[in-house]
Nucleic acid binder design. Sequence first.
DNA 1: CAAGTTTCGCTACCTTCGGTTTCGAAACCT
DNA 2: AGGTTTCGAAACCGAAGGTAGCGAAACTTG
Lengths: 185, 185
Amino acid sequence: MTSSTPARPPGRPRSGINDVVFAATLSTVHELGYARATVERIAAAAGIAKTTIYRRWPTKGALIVDCLLDAFGPVPLEGGSRAETMSAAIRWVAGKIGEPGVGDAFAGVFSDGVSDPELRAILSSRLQDPYRLALQDALGEPAHRVLFFIDVVVGTLLHRMGMTGRPMADDDIDALVEMVLPAFR
Amino acid sequence: MTSSTPARPPGRPRSGINDVVFAATLSTVHELGYARATVERIAAAAGIAKTTIYRRWPTKGALIVDCLLDAFGPVPLEGGSRAETMSAAIRWVAGKIGEPGVGDAFAGVFSDGVSDPELRAILSSRLQDPYRLALQDALGEPAHRVLFFIDVVVGTLLHRMGMTGRPMADDDIDALVEMVLPAFR
DNA sequence: CAAGTTTCGCTACCTTCGGTTTCGAAACCT
DNA sequence: AGGTTTCGAAACCGAAGGTAGCGAAACTTG
């Protein structure tokens, strides 16, 4: 059973700072915006060196994606009607995007991906795919329908965030839910 | 009547290169992506000096916005039923975003605006507002409803473009039209 | 305790890019 | 010809992503 207790590798162990870095990332992005939240500033806010960040994440984009994965966590999909499941998912992602720093970081890394195919691949495979698969399973919809659903919901929320700098208000989220549900009845 | 013939100002006149610059911008963005389409490369593609561009547009973002204004032109809103008007507007913007370079440029400048309030103001006032006002007039909807309509349509199209690198396919545009229309009946 | 291994912090550095400055040459009007 | 403005070219600045090198710190194993 040596493989099940994979004896800690030699050398100095990594300090458990991922959570600190994620928190520093969100707060820095929230305070300064995505572009001014440089890796150096994030490192300073986390109380570590910039090189330590680059030792763990290959690029700023990868750091942001991991940070978003940590911030979002799993999508809540407890049983209920299809309409309830979809409504809950929409309100959940809208709430997350409204949390301080999350929406800015999301919109920022999404924007960077527009002109960076490698980042786009990371974004698609690490961030979008897990939720897409969970939704396919919960809703019994084919992949392209779920991708369309994600485009509409996330696209709308990010467009509002990007144009106004603020998350979407609750009554518009209600309108979004009421518009999307009939299309997937 | 001296004011109606505003005697050309003295000095060397500006050469008529705006159209050349716009074309060079779109083709460069299309070939290299938004981030790699540097002002220097755009200028080279247009056969002019970088400083000439900065003499006419204060920032890269302002150049892109003017380029997009030129590329989009006025939204076609000839009379017809509300449904026909909205459907035509959706398909028109989807087609424009699908033109080479336009979608990339739009998504890129939108992304930059996320962390640049000044650019966001330019984007909102010069690009979004004219179309919003035209739609308010044509549809008889209040501002916040038209803004929601724009968030949904443009947000969805840009999210698809940003995640896949390609414009949305026709059948998904059909689904978008069929989802949006009942919400504005 | 000593050797070996890995991570950490720090500093310096490279490259790219947006944007500015400077200057001489060209184009236009009077 | 003289005045005014634009153009192209080149050098330059500052910010930011990302890298390299080094000594010190933190572990494991003998």
